[in-house]
Amino acid sequence: MDSEFDLAVWDLDSDGVAVPAGAVQGYAADWPHWLGWQATEMGLTCPCRSDLRPQAPDDFRRAFRVPGGGLGWPLRLLCEGCRWDLADPASADSR
């Protein structure tokens, strides 16, 4: 995750702590210029329609991978709220 053009992807560990799960390389460079439908096609929006792309240099949004999913194509990511909705109820207490 050393390039400013990579998207850091997160996951929840067994204790419910957000941890880096890897990166999707080379996507961020053109994100601000993509239209909403293009971002959706590329998997950069959550099923709840939240845009996972940073909107400003100081905007921090976490993109989480779908539980049990990888970082392959098609890219399937979730916003932090939707990822927590899928979390094991036992880990919800540690938030």
Rank of each mutant, 00 (worst) to 15 (best):
Q55N: 02
R61Q: 04
G16V: 11
R83M: 04
D58T: 14
A87I: 03
G69T: 00
G68P: 05
L44H: 01
C48K: 04
W84C: 08
R49N: 03
L75T: 08
D93G: 12
V66I: 06
G16E: 11
D6K: 11
A18Y: 12
A39C: 11
D30W: 08
V66E: 04
V24K: 02
G69M: 00
E4R: 15
C79K: 01
D30T: 14
G36H: 03
W10V: 08
R49D: 03
F64E: 00
L75D: 06
G81Q: 13
G72F: 14
S91L: 09
C79W: 00
C82L: 01
R62F: 08
W73L: 08
W37A: 13
P67A: 08
S91M: 10
A63Y: 03
A21K: 14
A28E: 07
E4G: 05
C46P: 00
S91T: 15
G22W: 11
P67H: 07
V24C: 04
V9N: 09
C82P: 03
P47R: 07
V17Y: 13
R76F: 03
P89T: 07
G70M: 05
A90S: 13
T45Q: 02
A92S: 13
D93Q: 15
A90R: 11
T40D: 04
H33R: 07
G26F: 14
W31N: 01
L52T: 03
